[in-house]
């Protein structure tokens, strides 16, 4: 059952990356593709109805972690105190910027909130990537499972590399979404930007893979099959972008991100917090889980709720789909 809980948390985080990933990505590329205030507003309108629901996947995954693996929740949240609070503040800045910009008709007001939105979103992507890098690499933990390093320690070269890769990955995802859901000058710029971001992502992916292989001393396991899928999806994105197939490009980008998340989960398993100090084991899904009764009830209730969410969420998304068009 611990494994089912691990899969569930992984699923929720993957949904978060696929969904909030596109609106984070759109926010990060908007300063580069939207030149005028109207064009920026077009980008915001494209993600406006969805971003809040998308972000709930992160909140729900956090709460599910609390219920399914309380010990891991407690030690990781208190151990990474400062970085988490910074993530919180960025989430706050982003939410406020998105919601309040439209309530006052002034160009200065809009420009300020657009900048706030783009910067906090870009920093969030970077921090999420750095967090992922640390989780893959392992973090220094003591015997009780508490983090013993410093904030600066978390900004190590490997983690920063993963962070940069994440920025390009979600920028690409954002490009494909913007192309699919808007039309206008900004859309054309996003269309031209996509292949360039694709090459940057490819380069960084190669670097991250190499660094990971070196860190793991070239020990390969069955998970070595996943990169094949990743590369296939990656090639599919390029073909779809070049071919002008907008929906296919977004689908390909989603599939590609999902394989990356699968890879990350396979690398970490069975640990939720792998220990950098190899003499002490990290926090595994078996140590952190509560009693079987609690686990069974949390799993049942969460899975039932998520099925309902997927049904009405996809229904609503289809109803609200359609292009936001920005004239000249």
């Amino acid at each position: 059952m611990s494994i089912a809980a691990f899969v569930l948390i992984g699923f929720m985080l993957t949904m978060y990356v696929l969904l909030d990933g596109y609106d984070l990505g759109v926010a990060a590329i908007t300063p580069f593709v939207a030149r005028t205030e109207r064009e920026r507003e077009g980008s915001m309108r494209a993600i406006g109805p969805f971003w809040n629901g998308n972000e709930v996947w992160l909140i729900a995954a956090g709460a599910a972690l609390f219920a399914l693996f309380p010990k891991a929740y407690a030690s990781s949240f208190s151990g990474f105190y400062l970085p988490l609070i910074i993530v919180l503040w960025l989430l706050m800045g982003r939410g406020v910027a998105m919601e309040l910009r439209s309530h006052f008709p002034s160009e200065i007001w809009h420009t300020f909130w657009d900048a706030c939105f783009a910067i906090s979103s870009a920093l969030l992507i970077l921090l999420f990537g750095v967090a992922l890098g640390n989780l893959l690499h392992g973090v220094p933990l003591d015997a009780q499972g508490y983090f013993t390093g410093t904030f600066a320690r978390l900004l190590n070269p490997y983690a920063l590399l993963v962070g940069l890769f994440t920025v390009t990955a979600l920028a690409l995802h954002g490009c494909t979404f913007l192309v699919m859901r808007t039309s206008g000058p900004a859309t054309e710029r996003a269309r031209r930007l996509a292949p360039r971001v694709w090459f940057a992502a490819l380069l960084l992916y190669a670097l991250v893979s190499l660094a990971t292989l070196i860190a793991h001393r070239f020990e390969l396991s069955w998970t070595a099959a996943i990169p094949v899928l990743t590369l296939a999806a990656f090639a599919w994105i390029y073909a779809a972008v070049r071919g002008g197939r907008e929906r296919a490009a977004f689908m390909a980008s989603s599939a590609w991100l999902a394989t990356l998340m699968l890879q990350a989960a396979a690398t970490m398993y069975p640990y939720l917090l792998p220990n950098l100090n190899r003499s002490i084991p990290g926090i595994s899904i078996f140590d952190a889980a509560p009693s079987p009764t609690a686990l069974a009830s949390a799993l049942t209730v969460t899975i039932a709720g998520l099925i309902a969410v997927l049904i009405y969420g996809s229904y609503v998304t289809r109803r609200l789909a359609g292009k936001v068009s920005v004239g000249e």
Binding site: G48, N52, V56, A64, A67, P70, K71, Y73, T302, Y312
Partner: peptide, 28 residues
């Protein structure tokens, strides 16, 4: 949280899956 998460994590997780999604998606 570590001591009581098995219990209070549940209503909090339910808030996420049953209430936040409903409120956020339909507010959109």
């Amino acid at each position: 949280s570590s001591a009581s998460g098995a219990v209070i994590g549940q209503p909090l997780a339910m808030e996420g899956t049953y209430a936040f999604f409903l409120e956020s998606i339909f507010l959109g």
